[in-house]
């Protein structure tokens, strides 16, 4: 079963939200989706780049009221 976990990185600056995502990925199962919340635009741009570099699946980014939602699927 896949589940979507929320990783709340709001209020933190680069690379805070990315590091929180990585900790959450460690505690997730392959196939799980994680949704990172970030108020830092730089992290919203950089997290998809990290995801591509290391080979997880980048699903989507949406922005709502100054909060970016970056969805990632764990592949390994």
């Amino acid at each position: 079963m896949t589940e979507r976990k929320i990783v709340d990185g709001k209020g933190s600056f680069c690379p805070g939200p990315l590091m929180e995502l990585i900790v959450a990925l460690k505690h997730s199962q392959v196939g799980d989706e994680l949704e990172v919340l970030s108020t830092d635009k730089g992290s919203a741009d950089d997290i998809p780049e990290w995801v591509r570099r290391v080979g997880h699946d980048y699903v989507s980014t949406t922005e709502n009221d100054g909060v970016w939602h970056i969805v990632v699927r764990k592949t390994k």
Binding site: G11, S12, F13, P15, G16, M19, I22, V23, K26
Partner: peptide, 20 residues
């Protein structure tokens, strides 16, 4: 500015680099 904002502390980042 970094002190006034919630920027991750450098020692914590180095520890995370080792840990993760």
């Amino acid at each position: 500015l970094m002190k006034a904002r919630n920027v991750p502390e450098f020692k914590m980042l180095f520890e995370q680099a080792i840990e993760l």
